[in-house]
Each structure stands twice: as C-alpha cells, then as structure tokens.
Design a protein around this nucleic acid. Structure first.
Length: 575
RNA sequence: GCGCCCGUAGCUCAGAUGGACAGAGCAGGAGCCUUCUAAGCUCUUGGCCGGGGGUUCGAAUCCUCCCGGGCGCGCCA
C-alpha cells in the first residue's frame, strides 16, 4: 500500500534566507552582463539583429580567456560574411574598451575575451555591497510558485527516500526564492480514504493482541513495530477501546495514530532542517465539498461522464492513454479525484506555477495529472520533479529496508547517525532522477567521496585565518583602489572570477530546478580557495597585503555560506 | 506488449536550449607540512560518451533502430 509521494522530504531555511531577495537586487554575473551589453550595442550599431540563441559564457578551457561568445557565428548569415570576418568587426568595435584587455578570434569564429584585473577586482565591491543578497537574480520576477514535497502518508515514519525528496524540495524552494520567486512550501496529508482505515485497523489489531486477544490477522495491515507502540498508547488513553463498536474503535485508532505519526513526521523534518509553510489535509478537501465541486465543473465542461456505474474523467482529451475513474461504482472517490480537486485548489490560491515532487515510481501518474491541470484551465503550470530511489548501504553492503527495528531505515535514524549536513549534501550533489547509493560509511567519511566537508572546510579555514588575524592585530582592508590593487596574483584573480560566477549558478539552478548545480559551484569555489590557501600566504605577507587578502577571503567565506544556505547546509566557523 | 527514465574513465557522477581536442572527484602511481586547520595542495595513469544508422559546417546532446538496466501501465494509493 503505497505512499503516493513516496520519496520526499526537506531542510532548514532561516528567515533571512527567505526575505533578503527582492526584485531590486537581482544581478547576473558582471562579466556576462557587461559583455552582452557591449556586444548588443555593437550589433545594433551595425544594423543587425541580436540572435536570441547567442551564448556568452566562460569557456571550458581557461586558455580561451575569461568569456567566450558565439555571436559572430550566429550572425554570419545575417551579415552575409564569414563568421571570422564578423568576429573581426567586433574586435574593431570593442578594442578601445579599458575593461577588456584582450579579444581573440578562435576556431570557427568564437570571440574570446580577457578582462582587465581591475574589472575583476570590482567584484569585491559587488559582493560586499550585496551582502546576503549576493546571488539574487530576477528569474522569477516575483511570480508565485508553490513547491509541494514529501507528502508522505501519515501511516509510518519517514524513511531515507523521503529524505531525498525533502532535501530537494526544501533546497529548491530556497533557490527559487533567491531567484526572485515568491515561494510557498506545502505538505499534502493523505488523511482520507482506505489507507487511513488500514492504519486504524492495524492499530486496533495490535491493541487486541496487547490485551491478550487473538484476533484474525487483517488482510492488509501495517506491520511495523511502531504500530504496536501506538496501540499501547491508544489503550492508555482509551481504556475502553476494546469495548467499543469495531467501527468506532477503528476510528479512534485511526485518528490517534494519524495525529501521532504526523507529529513524528514534523519532528523528523524539523531535525532535518526542512520546513513547510502549509500542511494541507486531503480530508479537508473532501469535507469541504471541493471534490464534488470539481466533479460538477468537469461534468459541466463535458469532460466528466458516467459509465458502468462510475464517474470518469476524459483525460484522453489531453493526451492521456485512457480515461480515468473519479468515483468508483461503489461510491468511493479515487485518489486521483482528490488530487484534481487539490490542484484546482492550488491554482485558485493564485500560484503561477506549481511544482510537485514525487517518487520516481509515480512517473506514470504524470500524464493524467497534467491532463487534469489542462482541463481545469492551467495548462503548462504544473511541473513534476521525480526523485529516484535511494539505496541505503553500509560499507558497500545493502542495509535491509525492512520495518524491523534496529535497522537504519528511518530518516530520523540516518540523520542521527550521519548528521543533517552530510545527508543533505549527499542528496543534493546528484541529479534527482537517477538512483542514489547512500552509503552510511561514506557519508560519515571525511573524503572527497563526501564533499560536504571539503566545502565546509574551506569556510572554516577562512574563519580560522580571520580569528588569527584578529589575534595578531591585522585588520581587514576596506575596498579602495589602493587595497584592491594589492590583489594582483593569479590566485587572487581566480577567486574573483569564481565569485562572479555565483549568480549565474543560482539562476541556472532555479531555471533547471536543479539544486545540484549549486553544490557543484560550491565545490569549485572551495577548490579554488584551497588552492589559494596553499599557494598564497596571507598573514605573513605584510600588513597591507594581508589586509587586502583578508578582504577578499571574507567575500569568499560569505559566498560559501550563502551557497551552503541554499542547500540547507551549515557553514561552520571551525572544524 | 505499450509508455517513461537511465546507460559518459576501474568506481561515483557533471555535461539544459547542438559548438572549440569529452570534464571533476575517488581509486592507482609520483611528490608537498620549521609558515595562516594536510578534512589540504601539485603532477600523473585512465574514456570507440551502450551499439548501428541519420540530420548538421559541427552531435555525449536532436531523429531512428537495436542492446542492456529500472519503473509504470487498477473502479490502488
């Protein structure tokens, strides 16, 4: 008996991370923005039209300079000359720009730009002035988006698979906020229908056993030990439980069990740093008549019909394989029926975009849900992200995922064992739709198989230097032409360039709904920092240079913490 | 059977909208601590991007057909 969104769950967002971004402070990476503006002007001056598919990005290979553009190739046809000739025109136009040190034409017609050191040094000012809002972009333009994730049935504790969905949903929400969306996070509680009855029946069955009875084993029941624990507590609270009617007793068990399990789920999520703004009850949908309302709407629009004693939704109108039953011939509504009403409700709350995070085993459910959204007038506004299975291992050996006690099968156990930071980083370092091996030994290990420590260590290293500097009376410099000019090593420039990349990674992560891009960026920034640390001495370089380098490293620490916060991972000052 | 996802170095993975010789970490090999945290750094070995066709000036990326793995195809949730 399934949990529909069976693989979800999430992390921690502090208030600051949710509120620091606004439309006003969104910026892209400077190098890219600067170049695009310059190139657009040049294109306009020539009377050409800017090719929308033009790409300006840092080249894969550093030997091609800081930024690379393919506009010349794109314009070749329009300009009626070879890409390299078009490129030569750009070189003529832009060669007087003081911020651009060098322009090369390469390969089939790529334009490769190298910026001046002063241009890069300006990054320090940008990062400092932006503070916590550094990395904010305006991809979302204030649009309202809802992210629904975890939504595990309140019939048992969360397992490791839910953890992956939780980390993903929570982090995605943080990223979308950073990217200029107004985000609300929601947990859909499947507290109506058959599985709740099964839960109640399971608890009652155990309660009877606890009282020495030998009831017949129910056809379908939850076998976990936690059911017996709950049964014991129900009996304490309702000593007369076994004297009630069967139906009343099941109801009592059901409500008690659901509430207790849900509380447990909330606690587990809290411990994992995951937050939901709204907990939405399926039962409330039914009780408030929203499901019936949806049926009426569908019937009115001709998209619902009766056949074989059941009520059907004509999902084939919208590309689904077959029509789907909404009300069974026995009178019960289906899960899908609630789900249509639920999504209708979501859109009525004014969201421009709705993101559902589901376990990958529900991918077959997507076409009918998309069909439903189209039917209720919201085509293209539902986005489903699938989260694939997590294989729990210990030292390469599979860990039994059975419900037996003593196994690390629950999220709470895993978080208690390996920690929230390491777990989240592991989940968020891979694409969500591929299977993930989660090895408890590896996740605890301090190696590059487990890069969370590598990134956190970079942050801690900088903090350590700052502490030491303070102890030695070395003050951090304030940005000024003089102090910035002291950032003149190759390593300084590397760091500056890396800092400038951050907003674009945020934007890509938001657009592709892929938190792992932030994780990859952080590993890159950490790597650059560690290299810097090894090659460039800070405190022993003389007071002025030390002060200037500390100023730069302070920016690096800020951006590391900034990015880690998007993943819901802490940035320790000491390790 | 039909549909969806996946197949990139020994391992784990990144390569959105096609672009410059396919990237990273781990593991293997060789080095680096009298200096700010060696949870670090440097160098190095290693790849017919599952396979065959096709579109393109250009394909890991798009189309098609195979092979291999996963999942889904209920008046279940």
């Amino acid at each position: 008996m399934g949990t529909r969104r069976s693989l979800e769950f999430g992390g921690k967002r502090d208030k600051a991370a949710r509120t620091t971004c606004s439309k006003e402070n969104g910026t892209h990476m400077r190098a890219k923005t600067y170049l695009e503006n310059a190139l657009r002007q040049a294109v306009e001056a020539k009377g050409w039209e800017w090719p929308e598919k033009a790409v300006i990005e840092p080249p894969k290979d550093k030997k091609f300079g800081d930024m690379s553009a393919n506009v010349a190739m794109m314009l070749s046809k329009q300009a009626k000359k070879s890409p390299r000739d078009v490129a030569a025109d750009f070189v003529d136009t832009l060669s007087g720009d003081a911020n651009i040190e060098k322009i090369d034409i390469a390969g089939p017609g790529f334009l490769n730009f190298t910026f001046s050191p002063d241009f890069w040094r300006e990054t320090v000012n940008v990062v400092r002035e932006a503070g916590g809002t550094y990395g904010c972009v305006d991809e979302g333009k204030g649009r309202k988006v809802q992210v629904e994730y975890v939504s595990a049935n309140p019939t048992g504790p969360l397992h490791i698979g839910h953890g992956r969905g939780a980390a993903l949903g929570d982090s995605l929400a943080r990223i979308l906020e950073k990217a200029g969306y107004e985000v609300e996070c929601e947990y859909y509680i499947n507290d109506a229908g058959r599985q709740m009855l099964i839960l109640g029946g399971s608890i009652l069955y155990r309660a009877k056993q606890l009282k020495g009875q030998t009831p017949a084993e129910p056809e379908d029941f939850y076998k976990g030990e936690y059911i017996s624990d709950i049964a014991g507590r129900v009996l304490e609270k309702h000593p007369d439980l076994l004297d009630m009617d069967e139906a009343d007793a099941v109801e009592v068990c059901k409500v008690y069990g659901k509430d207790e399990i849900l509380e447990g789920i909330k606690e587990d999520l809290k411990a994992f740093g995951v937050r939901h703004d709204v907990w939405f009850s399926e039962k409330s949908l039914v009780d408030d008549g929203m499901v019936d309302e949806t049926f009426g709407d569908l019937r009115k629009s001709g998209l619902g019909y009766d056949e074989d004693g059941a009520f059907w939704f004509k999902s084939t109108e919208f590309g689904d394989d077959k029509d789907r039953v909404l009300r069974k011939s026995n009178g019960d509504t289906t899960y899908f029926a609630s789900d249509i009403a639920y999504h209708d409700n979501k859109f009525k709350r004014g969201f421009d975009m709705v993101i559902d995070i589901w376990g990958a085993d529900h991918h077959g459910y997507i076409p009918r849900m998309q069909a439903a959204c189209e039917a209720i007038g919201h085509k293209g506004q539902l986005n489903v992200i699938l989260v694939n299975l997590v294989n729990l291992l210990r030292g390469g050996e599979p860990v039994a995922m059975s419900t037996r006690a003593g196994q690390f099968e629950t999220l709470a156990d895993v978080v208690a064992d390996v920690g929230s930071d390491a777990s989240r980083f592991m989940f968020l370092s891979r694409k969500s739709d591929s299977r993930l091996d989660f090895d408890l030994e590896l996740v605890k290990q301090k190696s590059m198989d487990n890069p969370v420590y590598y990134v956190q260590y970079a942050h801690a290293r900088i903090c350590s230097m700052k502490r030491k500097a303070e102890g030695e009376g070395v003050a951090m410099a304030e940005p000024s032409p003089a102090s910035l000019a002291l950032l003149d090593t190759e390593q300084d420039l590397e760091l500056l360039k890396c800092l400038d990349l951050y907003p674009d990674f945020v934007e890509s992560a938001a657009r592709q709904q892929s938190p792992h891009l932030v994780s990859m960026y952080l590993q890159e920034l950490a790597s650059t920092l560690h290299r810097y640390y090894t090659k460039v001495h800070v405190l022993s370089a003389g007071p002025e240079i030390a002060a200037a380098r500390l100023m730069l490293l302070d920016c690096v620490a800020d951006v590391l913490a900034n990015g880690l916060s998007l993943l819901g991972v802490s940035a320790p000052e000491q390790m």
